[in-house]
Design a protein around this nucleic acid. Structure first.
Lengths: 227, 227
DNA sequence: CGGTCCGTTGACTCACTTCAACAGTAGTGG
DNA sequence: CCACTACTGTTGAAGTGAGTCAACGGACCG
């Protein structure tokens, strides 16, 4: 979502809400009554197998709207939860929907946002379906680095507000194997992990390890609204 | 996309185009100039690894709009190809975009369509990330059966316009292993394959094998536009 | 009749899982 | 201040689901 649109959304009336980590925001089958703009923290969308096994299908970070799609499809088909203490700015669903109805350009911006989200899912399908465990972890780190870079002034370094179990649930791996892959990335010299941060030491190497090209993220991409 | 909206789209000026199987429709990085409504056949969206390995990220069947998202984001981030001889009805991108700009309700319908597509991707992520090979194949068959049922008058039987290699590329499996899983499904008594058709003999069993619930497809779902 | 594509099956290999154990840190309560 | 618990990260050893490699039959087609 572009900077301009994000500011429009912030100008809508809403409520700030602080939530602990590992808390459900919306549950399967409920109706979403408000759209959540993330101020700080991480919200993950997930699906669940009968055996309780989870699969995260998206991560939302500061500046993302975690359930924008609910503006037009309020019944929750994928629940949301926080992965860490998170602050949201919640706007009534009707406010968003009415604004989109009045302003075609805003509607288009929201539509774009949902399309981009779908393209990220498609990219995840590619890496999870065809990538090795090492490539999956490297790819996720690349994606997060790019997305955090777009919203902060730091570059090549980002806060990892996920446990290795979270990463495994996003990549279709076990936490144990994620641990081994992170170690391998560290030993290869492409990244460094300290505290809650990942620092990228060798972008070229990490991109190659993750077969990453960031074009699908559409960050600062003027062509998104191209006519 | 609802029946009503599909009829609106069909009323737009466009061109019918017949294409052979295994042909590219749009290539990576190109600009999409027309939106394709599928009249007959199958179009697959895919991503590709550097080693040439493919991963299908969506299948579009009769009545689907294969690249509706291009109305707002014309630069192709996932190429499209046919899996079998296919007929398209192609509408100029500007026609779709302008119609959405003039009619908020049509814009919302298109937006819904893109959201549903994203939810299907999320469901694929769940099955591919966490399901066994057998569950993945069973799940795909369930999904296709439901989607074909919604657009035809046959039930429990659908045309499989994909090779086992295509299925493998969609599910992150090899064609060899897909073959083994299809056989296992056949031997379990849940399905029957003959010619180009899959017949479902035991829905309950197949659903369980694929851990399938069809709610994410939003077929005949009045709540999609719920206010 | 030969070539190509698709489905099919068998034998072997390997990437990732599973199971298990342990260390560091933080929070909690006696 | 020190147990006690819980969570996360870490590492090792053993098991297995899916991949790889290879071969063959049938259908279709030029």
């Amino acid at each position: 979502m572009s900077e301009v649109d994000r500011n429009i959304v912030r100008s809508f009336p809403g409520t700030v809400r602080a939530i602990e980590g590992s808390r459900d925001i919306v549950r399967l089958g409920e109706r979403t009554e408000h759209i959540s703009l993330i101020v700080e923290g991480v919200v993950a969308r997930f699906g669940q197998m009968a055996d309780g096994n989870r699969q995260f299908t998206a991560f939302f970070i500061s500046g993302d709207m975690a359930d924008l799609h609910a503006a037009v499809m309020p019944v929750v088909s994928s629940p949301l939860q926080t992965t860490c203490p998170t602050t949201l700015y919640q706007i009534d669903r009707a406010v968003i929907r009415d604004a989109a109805e009045r302003s075609p350009s805003l509607a288009q911006a929201f539509w774009c946002d949902c399309v981009t989200e779908g393209q990220i899912s498609a990219e995840w399908l590619l890496t999870i379906g065809r990538g090795t465990a090492l490539a999956r972890v490297a790819h996720l780190f690349c994606e997060l680095a790019c997305r955090y870079e777009a919203i902060s002034d730091e570059s090549g370094r980002f806060p990892l507000l996920l446990t290795q179990a979270h990463i495994g649930d996003a990549l279709g791996l076990t936490a144990v194997h994620v641990n081994r892959m992170v170690r391998q990335l560290r030993e290869s010299g492409s990244i460094l992990t300290e505290n809650e941060y990942v620092t990228i030491l060798d972008w070229t190497l990490l991109r190659r390890q993750g077969a990453f090209t960031g074009s699908y993220l559409h960050l600062n991409d003027p062509s998104r609204n191209g006519s």
